[in-house]
Write a protein that binds this DNA or RNA. Structure first.
Length: 144
DNA sequence: TGCGAGCCTG
DNA sequence: CAGGCTCGCA
């Protein structure tokens, strides 16, 4: 599901897990999961962005892409799609590239010296959530 | 006072 | 991932 929605609201989560009885604890746990998912996502983006900086990569360089043949893609897929039962949507790759380039740009221009430099990137990425396919509403359907 | 977000730890 | 802790908002 993270492939579609990086910032699902608690209400969104409830509609996609009909077989789950939500209470405060369960809801906060799921919110927490996505918080952890985002952390991993952004950590990888920053890592690869920083890795590209010393190589003088331009935004169009292969170093700043997240194609299905890249190491970054492999890491993300392994983390969010362990069983590899889902096909990674193209939009997730596009969003990942946006994030990667935003991180690169911020680092390249020295904006990362600001303690809150990631906030701006988060604000951009949170607007790029896609609707989650209805197939994820099926009872027993794993998080994905 | 309670909850969500974010950071960071194990 | 889960726990713990801080912050800002209501």
């Amino acid at each position: 599901m993270f492939f579609y929605a990086r910032y699902p609201s608690s209400n969104t989560l409830k509609t996609y897990f009909p077989d789950v009885k939500f209470n405060r604890c369960v809801t906060s746990q799921m919110i927490k999961w996505f918080s952890n998912f985002r952390e991993f996502f952004y950590i990888q983006m920053e890592r690869f962005a920083r890795q590209a900086v010393p190589r003088g990569a331009h935004p169009v360089d292969s170093q700043l892409r997240v194609g299905r043949d890249t190491e970054l893609y492999r890491i993300l897929n392994m983390h969010y799609n362990k069983s590899n039962v889902y096909q990674v949507p193209e939009r997730f790759i596009e969003v990942s590239e946006v994030a990667l380039r935003e991180f690169y740009s911020a680092i390249w221009t020295g904006r990362d010296s600001d303690p809150c430099w990631k906030k701006g990137i988060y604000k951009i990425i949170c607007k790029l959530d896609s609707p989650v396919p209805d197939t994820f509403r099926l009872p027993g359907c794993p998080m994905g």
